[in-house]
Design a protein around this nucleic acid. Sequence first.
DNA 1: GCTTAAATTGACGCAGCGTCATGGGCCGCT
DNA 2: AGCGGCCCATGACGCTGCGTCAATTTAAGC
Lengths: 193, 193
Amino acid sequence: MDAKPSASSRRELTKSQNREIILEAARLVFAQLGFATATVRDIIRATPLASGTFYNYFKSKEQVYQALRDEEALAVRPRLRQARATATTAQEFVAANFRAFFWFVAEKGGTGGDRFRLDSPEVLAGFAELREDIERAMARGLLPPNDAGLLTAALTGVAFELAEEVKRGAEVEKVTQFATDLLLGGIGVPPKT
Amino acid sequence: MDAKPSASSRRELTKSQNREIILEAARLVFAQLGFATATVRDIIRATPLASGTFYNYFKSKEQVYQALRDEEALAVRPRLRQARATATTAQEFVAANFRAFFWFVAEKGGTGGDRFRLDSPEVLAGFAELREDIERAMARGLLPPNDAGLLTAALTGVAFELAEEVKRGAEVEKVTQFATDLLLGGIGVPPKT
DNA sequence: GCTTAAATTGACGCAGCGTCATGGGCCGCT
DNA sequence: AGCGGCCCATGACGCTGCGTCAATTTAAGC
């Protein structure tokens, strides 16, 4: 009945199942206790598995956390990329990027309440993509030329910080407007309709 | 003859000395091992004191870290405040604020390489001050009216993210220029002299 | 069915945590 | 100076979580 051949053999199947069980338990435990308080034991206790098994899949709770973050990054990156790719004006480029990000944050709330910047592979790749897209947009005249590195940093700074406001309940569209106007015209320019 | 009643008696003296000894050891240990790896034991081992003594002064390594952060925040806040207070134009307001912050970061490098946002009292107070100053500046027409909450968030986002670039060796003045131009005129406006 | 490789299990030694009874030294008072 | 009381430093103690590993179960191939 199982038409999905990705992990057909019995062994491979339970293996990826176990991995998923652990990740799911970790999601739950982190949400409940917070990353700092949670222990590896808490995670496996929320699981039918034994303590030793955990270490067959992850080296530490940090690594599980990274894996969860990577899943998120992997989910949001295509959306951001596409949003930027389809833009034909600077306005669209910036607005679409912010909107996609804030929308994702609003619906998922981020993996945890704990607030630290993770330099996990997928996240870094996301930054790299953003920078590439910015450079490409500058090259084809969509964005005015500027220091791409600094602009990337500034953009992510604004995005992550305003994301907190979104998590606190701010309206996605309003924050998107604000961020876009700020990036495009600075504080001195009245918002465009 | 003792005009300063704060630590006159012998007892009070060694008490504040011990506190300082612990903080100093913590600075060292955090710098060496990083916050995540360091343990309370590592800190007291770098000290002539006994393990129990630590807990007379701090509840956990998190609290020592907070104390260190608070020291930094307490050091930088007046500089920022003054920078903003003496500004007579929007340009000055923003530039002075960024410059003071980046300069501080460049000279101190932050307490640790670990990168998480601390909601410690002094840090939060710093954000509150920034917001107050922004609102005041808007009220007296120095800055155009805007959502102060979002603007504060965006400003801190840009500041903290660009601070990383400064730590990585970017020139303070260049980054300050960039941040100021971005905040004032957005990406479309050529830099003012 | 039988062998072999792979993966699970939980007990084990170890390290760090936070506490607490003990003891020493500082303070104020006589 | 001598004395009693009171902080506070001390480090041993019990406890919890960590990561490992030999024993055992389970799937795969023959």
